[in-house]
Design a binder for these strands. Structure first.
Lengths: 152, 152
DNA sequence: TCAAAATACTTGTCTTGACAAATATCTTCC
DNA sequence: GGAAGATATTTGTCAAGACAAGTATTTTGA
């Protein structure tokens, strides 16, 4: 995921909230992915780097709960990072079913740049939104999330 | 996309607005995809069906502006619908570079069920949100969207 | 007129997301 | 102790999103 195609409305009636949400998230993501191109990462990969950097090491299971994807997705994200030489997988000491993901030296070296980009993105996106507005947003989103529920 | 994996927070500090947005959109999408399984469609495919049904026929270019994806994505979505026998592609009359996508009889037959599912989804998601709250949400989202801007 | 630029679509490639099924390793509890 | 079930990870498959590059056709403009 990188640059986003232009999407200049066609059947210009009012856009539904659902579609608007979708569009916002997609553009956020694409924009961030594009910014991250300069360090050769994607948003998800950067998240893993960042989390591992803070925690020292994490298992795929732990990463799964942090990344909003499933365990299979994490496996392959880690695969890519491993191929890039940014993380290593080691068997867990106490539970041999498990694995610990840990940054390599060059992975660690990338973290400050990633953090800087992430911080810039966050500042940019929510600039102009007061703390109260952000809180309002958060609350509305949580209510929607509760409404999603299980499939019918 | 179908069922969503459980994601029970791990490093339970406050979740950022960006992540929350991502999570909400993903669960909305996955839930809708799952509901649509019973008619053998995905959310994007359903959108094409629905749009073509209302417009009579649409070109990929028009669909691209409606679907929040790029032209390549539309090509392949239409491919899948064509394989399922739900739409046809015909050369455009006046511009032979172009193509018109039109529902087949069985595509048309599916529309009411899709519309019903879409309507149910919309009602469910935003139930409990007042019109004012939805408007507030919409406004905040537009502001974020404006903040995304072009890549640095 | 007719070559160059623009436009509409398609195809190729990589990354991700979701789910099912397979494998390896614990844990339980008879 | 050892079978049955639970858990952690991986692998396979399909749909999608983004972008680049290719093809066919139309439009521009020298």
């Amino acid at each position: 995921m990188r640059r986003l195609a232009e999407a200049p409305e066609f059947g210009a009636e009012e856009e539904g909230l659902g579609r608007l949400l979708l569009r916002v998230v997609r553009e956020m993501r694409t924009r961030f992915d594009r910014d991250l191109e300069r360090v050769g990462l994607t948003a998800q990969q950067a998240e893993i780097l960042f989390r591992c950097s803070r925690a020292g090491e994490l298992t795929p299971k732990q990463l799964t709960s942090l990344l909003i994807t499933d365990n299979a997705g994490v496996t392959r994200l880690v695969d890519r990072l491993e191929r890039k030489g940014l993380v290593t997988r080691r068997a867990s000491a106490n539970d041999r079913r498990s694995v610990t993901v840990r940054l390599t030296r060059s992975g660690t070296a990338l973290v400050p740049r990633v953090a800087r980009l992430a911080h810039a993105q966050k500042r940019r996106l929510f600039s102009g939104l007061s703390a109260a507005e952000q809180e309002q947003m958060r609350s509305l989103l949580h209510r929607i999330l509760d409404n999603v529920g299980p499939a019918a």
